[in-house]
């Protein structure tokens, strides 16, 4: 994608788009899909915005260009013909994408993420607890995380790997994530949960398959 690169390089946006928590710097296929959806919507929106602004400006600056448009053309054209196909196409695409992102099909490994004010406890598929608020997963394959809460509502969000899911007391929610490469991916609580909300960071460590098998078998 060269366009994102071009936009991120704009000097005004000094920070660029990369960052350990940036959704625009995806590190897995699911997050990449979401980023692509964003860029498509951004460029589409920019076009529509420019169109509306141009029409408004022309009403004052170049009235001759727009006086011949009839009332019906304004309303049917602008209000119906323009948005309806765009919205159907976009919503349809998003729904199909949403179906693909659901945690279904061949059951991958299922990890646990338990939120409690204001820290996370992660578990291996066999139920063993991990230490230090770090979730160890294998890279290169999808995994599921079952997210639960001890007290109030939290949300589990690792922006570079995929979207977020809420941790709600009394419920268990599933989210599927995938990291392309071994590495460290930062995550955080996204739902306001009281005075410690600021610091509810955690890490995902993605390991190469062999290393991960060692972790699973090794019993730490």
């Amino acid at each position: 994608m060269f366009k994102p690169v071009a936009l991120c390089a704009t000097p005004l946006l000094l920070t660029g788009c990369t960052g350990a928590l940036s959704t625009l710097d995806p590190a897995g296929p699911r997050a990449a899909n979401l980023a692509t959806l964003w860029w498509v919507m951004l460029y589409g929106s920019a076009l529509l915005f420019a169109l509306v602004m141009a029409l408004f400006a022309m009403a004052y600056l170049r009235p001759a260009w727009v006086t011949r448009i009839t009332p019906a053309q304004w309303i049917v054209g602008g209000g119906l013909v323009l948005p309806i196909p765009i919205l159907i196409l976009l919503t349809g695409t998003a729904l199909v994408l949403g179906e693909q992102l659901l945690p279904r099909g061949d059951a991958p490994l299922r990890f646990g993420a338990h939120a409690e004010r204001w820290h996370w406890t992660f578990t291996y598929p066999d139920g063993r607890e991990m230490s230090d608020e770090v979730l160890h997963i294998p890279a290169g394959r999808p995994i599921d995380v079952a997210v639960t809460s001890q007290d109030v509502i939290h949300a589990f969000w690792v922006p570079r790997l995929g979207g977020k899911i809420d941790a709600i007391p009394g419920h268990e929610n599933l989210i599927r994530l995938e990291a392309d490469e071994p590495g460290t991916y930062w995550g955080q609580c996204a739902e306001y949960c009281g005075p410690g909300h600021d610091g509810m960071w955690f890490r995902i460590e993605a390991h190469a398959s062999d290393d991960f098998a060692g972790l699973m078998g090794g019993g730490q």
Binding site: I84, I88, T91, L95, L102, P103, R104
Partner: peptide, 17 residues
């Protein structure tokens, strides 16, 4: 139009997941 489009997902979307 709203009924046609908003309810359309009953034909394909995942029911319970």
């Amino acid at each position: 139009l709203a009924a046609l489009l908003v309810f359309m997902p009953v034909t394909f979307a995942s029911l319970c997941s």
